[in-house]
Amino acid sequence: MFKFLETFMVVYRTHSFSLAAQQLFITQPTVSNQIKQLEAQLNTELFERKSRRESVPTPAADILYKRSAKILDDWHDINTEITDLQASKKAHVRFGISQTVSRILFARIANQLNQRQPDVHYDVTVSNSEGVLTLLEDYKIDLGIIEKPLVTEHVKRLSIGKDQLVKAGTPTGTWITREAGSGIGYYTEQYFREADIHPIRLIHVNNSGLIRRIVSTGVGQALLSSKDVPENVQVETLGSAFIRDFYLLTRDEDLQVPLLMAITELIKQVTDNLDA
């Protein structure tokens, strides 16, 4: 049943049985069979097959999708609790962080977790800012840390530090930036608008570390955190207009969970002294 729900959620997002099969690394007939079994159990149709490539969710699918993430998260928690009970009874937290956070901030948090919460097990998933938010909404992580100012229902956003963006690299007319959904991509587009910049060539890269390496070779320019600029690279400060926040994301329903409250407080203390 739970595997069927996982398959259903991917089909719902992609509107495609074939794309869902690719993402789940299973065959399309397997996807179709699982959806048919789920429809049989619910005695309703979940998707209207408009064509071989598109499947449109029905109103029943809309209802099921809203509940499925919570059902799967509860099942995950049950499994985790039983596993912890049988093993070491240690707590477990899942973090989702953006790439800039992974490069310049999370190591400090991990250090303090190791010192002050040694019994906590944790996993870390790195994605862009919008990807982290989606993971939180889908109950696949417990806490998110991003730098793009996203707002959504039922998710609390707390500013936990400042970060100065700078223009780094050689002015060749080429700009290197991140993909849509990322913090760097968001602020780069903002900078283009405000400075009326029209790049001769625009290179999109989905990895902040690769942007640093490309910039260091003299290919072009990019917006980077002032804390993440390669050595011997030309830098131009952008001033206070491009001081951005790091944000801690939590679901409203988790605000009173003691472990998450303790880790939230720890993260705030780690980031209180960040230099802008």
Rank of each mutant, 00 (worst) to 15 (best):
E147T: 12
F8E: 01
A195V: 06
K70E: 10
L165K: 08
L72V: 05
V205K: 11
I97W: 00
F25T: 12
S88G: 13
T125I: 15
D254I: 09
E81C: 15
T271H: 00
V11Y: 10
E137I: 11
E130T: 08
G183I: 14
R52I: 14
T27C: 09
T80R: 14
A61T: 08
K268I: 04
R157A: 02
F2C: 08
Q164M: 06
S51C: 10
Q256V: 14
I214V: 12
E39I: 08
T172F: 07
T174L: 08
Y191H: 05
L210Q: 15
F106E: 05
H76L: 03
N114T: 15
R193S: 10
S51E: 03
A168C: 09
T100G: 09
V56D: 04
N232I: 12
T177D: 03
E48G: 06
R251W: 03
L64G: 03
L158H: 00
G181V: 04
L133Y: 02
N128R: 02
L133F: 05
R116I: 10
E194N: 09
V166M: 09
H15P: 06
I35L: 13
I35K: 04
A87P: 01
I263N: 13
T177L: 15
D123P: 02
P199H: 11
T152A: 14
L249C: 07
L133W: 01
A195I: 09
L248F: 04
R244V: 14
L42A: 08
F47W: 11
G181Q: 07
Y186W: 14
D73L: 11
N33S: 11
T134P: 03
K50L: 15
A69L: 09
S159D: 00
P57K: 06
A107C: 15
G209E: 10
N206H: 13
F25L: 07
Q34L: 01
Q115L: 15
Q221R: 02
L202T: 11
N114W: 03
S182H: 02
G131R: 02
R94N: 00
K140I: 07
D196N: 07
I176W: 12
S225K: 07
Q164E: 05
A20C: 12
K70P: 00
L143E: 00
L113V: 10
F95M: 08
T271K: 05
